[in-house]
Design a protein around this nucleic acid. Structure first.
Lengths: 125, 125
DNA sequence: CTGAATCCAGATGGATACTG
DNA sequence: CAGTATCCATCTGGATTCAG
């Protein structure tokens, strides 16, 4: 019996580490917004993303994009324009985040209603 | 046509804000692990969670639990024991996170394989 | 246009000690 | 047991400037 419990706890530790792994990738103030923006338009340039996301600085956008690239979620392509522009798109692996993004979107809407909705529904619109 | 595009962008902004809302709640170094721990055992005491999560300090656990409580994800109950103990459980609203946690878990496993798995599969086990 | 570099304030979080 | 209080190092991220 003790063995079963130990196994259960072991499994749970694995699960927690897995979720944590996901969060490590997704953490960062803007990461999800960036993915969401790229995903929404399929291909998106640096300056476009900069405009999509209210309040982000180019420093942060650059930094977070680099991290996403390292994690193989985003592919970076330099376009031979004048001046040069850079195009970002999700990798296949990045695409697999869509379900999660979608779930987070739905949950976020419900949560906002739950927390402030009753008192201040206008904030939602 | 311009109107359609504008509407589309407006929708996208709403989606991004919704995801961001979710992340605001879920951000914090330990929040997901805490939820995962409570969720796994249904009811869990402070010191038990402290043991479940490797590396967390009581200061952090206390702080993050408080935030989760404010966001109505977790319910706190003081038990009349000697010495007192405190039990935490997910609220109904907190329960709705299970899908997301589950997805994040699955994705985390895949992601770890993707990033380090090929070179160092032993890290996964 | 797409970043990189620098500076700097404020937030985050660990260690430790203390309380009811 | 379940926190709180304090100190302090590190990290985060904004503003600005510079470069290819």
């Amino acid at each position: 019996m003790k063995c079963v419990i130990a196994e259960f706890q072991q499994e749970q530790k694995k699960r927690m580490r897995a979720v944590q792994d996901s969060m490590d990738v997704l953490n960062g103030k803007w990461k999800i917004s960036i993915i969401s923006s790229i995903c929404c338009y399929k291909k998106r340039r640096f300056s476009d993303i900069l405009n999509d996301i209210e309040g982000i600085s180019n420093r942060m956008l650059s930094k977070e994009l680099k991290e996403l690239e390292i994690n193989q979620l985003v592919k970076r392509t330099v376009l031979d324009t004048q001046p040069i522009s850079v195009q970002y798109e999700l990798t296949e692996h990045g695409d697999t985040l869509q379900t999660i993004i979608s779930n987070l979107t739905d949950w976020g809407i419900v949560h906002r209603k739950k927390i402030v909705g009753e008192k201040c529904p206008v904030l939602i619109g």
